[in-house]
Simulated assay, not measured.
Amino acid sequence: MTESDALLEVNGLKTHFFTPDGVVRAVDGVDLTVPRARTVCIVGESGCGKSITSRSILRLIDPPGRIVDGEIVWRGGQQSGRTPGDGAAVDLVSLDPDGERIRRIRGNEISMIFQEPMASLSPMYTVGAQMIETIRLHRSMSKDEAREHATAMLARVGIPQPERRIDAYSFQLSGGMSQRVMIAMALACQPDLLIADEPTTALDVTTQARILDLIRELQADTHMSVLFITHDLGVVAELADDVVVMYLGTVVETGSVDDVFHDPKHPYTRALLRSIPTMGRGTRERLPSIRGMVPHPSQRPPGCPYHPRCDEAIAGRCDQEDPPVVALGPRRTARCVLYDPSGGPPGPSPASAGASGTAEAGMEDTP
C-alpha cells in the first residue's frame, strides 16, 4: 500500500494513565493503518485498549492519561469544502489537544459515534439544535441553511418525519433512533473517517443489523473510511475489510477479514474464533472459551502479555521475551514468537507438556 492510500497511520502509539497506584499502560505500542474508503475493525475483549486507542486518535484523553510516545499521521481533508492544503500529512500527536487545528479536524475530517447515544446527546437541547451547532461550527452556513442540511441528514439515515423529529429531544427517541441521530450528526460534515466505538452494543439484533446496513450504505455513497471498534466477531465478519486484533494494549494480529477468519495466526485470534457459537454444535456440547481473563493493564505480565492464557506458550520464551511483530504479507502481521525467524523454542509448550486446552472463561460481552 502506498503512502497516498493510507488515510490514517498509527505508529508506536502509547497512551498511559499516571495514577497514585502507578502507571497504567492502557495502550502500549499500537500500530495500525486505515486505508482510504475501507473499513477497519478493531476487535478484542473488554480491557484490551480499543476505546482508548480511538480516543487517542481524536486527542480526547482526559487527565491523568496522556499520549507518551508514537505518532498519529493523518492525511485527510480531501472531501469537498475543506480548507486548501488540509490534505497534507499531519501528526495529530504534535497538535495542541485544545488547539484550533485539532478542533477543525475533530468532527469535521474525523467524526466519532460513541457507544451510548443517550449519554452523548444532551437532554437539554433538541437533536436539531445540537446538529445545527455542529454543522455551523465547521461549515459557513446560516442557521436556516444548517437546519435544512440537518433535516436532510436525518432523512438520509432513515429517520421518519425528519421535519418533525428535528425538534424532538433525545429522551423522546428510541435507542435505535437516537443512534441514527448520532450517525447523522457524525456524517453531517462529510468526514473522511468515521470512528464507531461499539455503536450497536446496546441495541437489539434487528436494530443492530439496520445500523450496520446504514453504515455500509453511507460508506458506499461517500467513500469515507470507517474505523469500527467491537468485541463482536459476527459484526467483524459482516462489516470489515481489514481486521486489527488487540490484546492488553497491543496489536497481536492484522490482516484482511478473509485472512484473519480463514487463516488466523496468533493463538489469541484462534481462541476468539473458537469461542463463536455455531449452529452445528450439539445442545450439550460445551462452548470453547478462553481460560482466565484479561488482566488489568497495571498488572501486565512479563514477556508476551497473552502467555498466561495461551495453550501454545513456549516455556522460557513467551514468559520472558517481548514478542516481535512479524510481517507475514501485505497488511498481514502477527506479534508472536511462533513466527520469529531468529530461533526455535528453547523448551516444550504447555500444550505439549499436557496442559489442558479446555477454556473456562470466554470473551466478555461488555465494551
Rank of each mutant, 00 (worst) to 15 (best):
V90E: 09
G343E: 04
T283H: 13
G357Q: 14
Q179M: 05
A150Y: 12
V73M: 11
D192N: 12
E148M: 14
I215M: 14
M363C: 14
P288D: 06
G234N: 07
I52L: 11
D319H: 02
M112K: 01
A361H: 15
G44P: 11
V73S: 09
G329L: 03
D86P: 03
R106Q: 03
I102E: 07
G70Q: 04
S256Y: 03
S80C: 12
A119C: 12
P295H: 11
G22Y: 08
A315V: 11
A150I: 13
I102Q: 07
G344T: 12
L193T: 04
P277L: 04
D31F: 12
L173N: 00
G44W: 03
R317C: 11
G128N: 03
G280M: 13
E45Y: 05
V34E: 10
G176P: 02
P305I: 05
P323G: 13
D31N: 15
I113R: 09
M177N: 00
S54T: 04
R66S: 09
V73A: 12
P267W: 03
R284I: 12
S178K: 00
F17H: 01
S122H: 06
R317G: 08
P160M: 02
T230F: 08
L287M: 06
M118E: 00
T134F: 10
H149P: 08
D197Y: 02
